[in-house]
Each structure stands twice: as structure tokens, then as C-alpha cells.
């Protein structure tokens, strides 16, 4: 439920749930951030810790997930303006982006294709069904794009969202290790790789490490999202005819 409909249907219980869910989520997240800065381990990613904490709390208190999700609609709504805000970090790095435009776009294109093809192929090789495999295809792009793409292809939305979130967390936690392991020192390459592989969750981690890496990740998240959308639409039209 978005804030506008909360205000327009002023129901006491709905409003109370909205306030409680919002305040509790922020409080848990702030605690997770404090813990993260104290321990300084990337494994304690604040978003991951918050999600686990809230799942435990909901299970203990026997609150259905749907009730929480509806009440916490403010966050889902703000995902929109937050993605829009990424344009500002891209704007601040526009000179570097202009200089490296071709390599950045090429990286996003190759990454998006690798993501879609490898996700589908791996699922099929592991014996997962067609529906499941299709739901995995848009797993590297940000949630709103992934949901649209998954619906276009006829996948299971819940599975797509789960794959997108888990991929984002994996990318956020392990991208610095991957860069070290494979000796990738180029900051532009690192940023583009994080944004293409792990969308906005990876981008928020990249921004912590370095402004340039974060901005490149923001660019990559948008470009890879656009490419995935177009490839899905084209593939759909081709297979339909």
C-alpha cells in the first residue's frame, strides 16, 4: 500500500500498521548499520541482517508476511525515487562516463547477455522446470524491471523477486572479494561489473567503497536494465511469431 492510499482511506488499524511497520523497519535497519560499522565485516550486510531480523520477528509473533509487506509499502514506494536519485551520482561523474562510454556500454551488454543465458541454461541443466528457469532470466536487474520482464516471459514473479534480492546481496557482499581474487583493479570495470551483476543493492555497497565505482555501478544498473528489457521484448516477439 502506498502512502497516498493510506492517507485517502484513513483507517485506524491500517494507519497504525503502517506506522509500526515503518518505524520498526527503520529501527532494525539502523541497528544493523551500527552493527556493520562496529564489526566491519561485509558478511554482516545491513540489508541482509535487517531482513533476517524481521523474518525472525514476524515468525515469532505469527504475523503473516503479506501483512508486513502491505504495511511497509512506504519502502517499496520509495524504491522508485531512490532509483531516480542515482541520476545525480551519474551526473557528478559525467566527464569520466563520457570518456569511457563505449567500454561501459559494451560491458553492460555482454554482462546482461551472459546473465540471461547462463541463468536459463544452468537451471535447465540442473533439471529445474521451464517456468522456474524463465523466472531466473532477469535475475541481475533491479526489482521493478525484473518483475516486468518476468511477467512478459510468463515466469513466477515471487521466484524472480527472490532471485533478484539474493543475487543483489551476494553481489554486494562478494564483489570486493571477486575483484581481489581475479585481480581486477580498474575502478570503472569494477563498478560496471557490480551494477550489471547486482543492480541497486550492489550499487549501494559500491558507493560505500568509492564514489567513482558507485557512479559507474549506477550507470550500469540503468543500462543493463534497459538492455535486459529490450532483449526480453525482442525475444518474446521472435518466439511468438
Amino acid at each position: 500500500m502506498d502512502p497516498v492510499s493510506v492517507i485517502s482511506n484513513l483507517d485506524f488499524m491500517v494507519a497504525l500498521r503502517f506506522i509500526v511497520a515503518t518505524v520498526v523497519s527503520i529501527a532494525v535497519f539502523e541497528l544493523a548499520v551500527i552493527l556493520y560499522h562496529k564489526v566491519k565485516s561485509p558478511l554482516l550486510n545491513p540489508m541482509l541482517v535487517t531482513v533476517i531480523g524481521l523474518i525472525l520477528a514476524l515468525t515469532l509473533l505469527h504475523v503473516p508476511v503479506e501483512t508486513y509487506q502491505q504495511a511497509a509499502g512506504l519502502f517499496t514506494f520509495m524504491l522508485g525515487p531512490a532509483t531516480v536519485a542515482l541520476a545525480y551520482s551519474v551526473y557528478r561523474q559525467r566527464k569520466i562516463l563520457k570518456e569511457h562510454f563505449v567500454p561501459v556500454v559494451a560491458g553492460c551488454l555482454v554482462g546482461s547477455i551472459v546473465s540471461m543465458v547462463s541463468a536459463y541454461t544452468l537451471c535447465r541443466l540442473l533439471g529445474l522446470g521451464h517456468d522456474m528457469a524463465i523466472s531466473f532470466i532477469p535475475k541481475s536487474v533491479t526489482t521493478p524491471i525484473a518483475i516486468a520482464a518476468s511477467q512478459e516471459l510468463g515466469g513466477i514473479t515471487a521466484i524472480t523477486v527472490a532471485a533478484v534480492i539474493i543475487t543483489g546481496i551476494l553481489g554486494a557482499i562478494f564483489s570486493p572479494y571477486m575483484a581481489k581474487l581475479f585481480h581486477i583493479e580498474n575502478r570503472i570495470a569494477k563498478g560496471v561489473a557490480v551494477g550489471t551483476a547486482a543492480h541497486a543493492i550492489g550499487t549501494s555497497r559500491a558507493l560505500e567503497i568509492d564514489e567513482l565505482e558507485g557512479a559507474m555501478s549506477g550507470v550500469a544498473l540503468a543500462v543493463a536494465g534497459l538492455m535486459t528489457t529490450f532483449i526480453v521484448i525482442v525475444a518474446h516477439l521472435v518466439f511468438q511469431s
Binding site: 503479506e66 511497509a72 519502502f75 517499496t76 545525480y88 521466484i159 534480492i165 543493492i201
Partner: peptide, 29 residues
Amino acid sequence: VGMACDYLIDNMSIFFVPAGVGIMGCVSL
């Protein structure tokens, strides 16, 4: 827009929390 953009970008991962909690809903799958 500068200050609000920085504010949202700094706290971006919180906006994915409801979707993350929603993973619990497809545990049966």
C-alpha cells in the same frame, strides 16, 4: 535535488527490505 539524492542513495538498501522479507513467502516453492 542534491541533498535528497545523497540521502536516498546513502540509505538505498533499506528500500529492498520488504522484497527481501517477501522471500519467506515463497519458501514453500
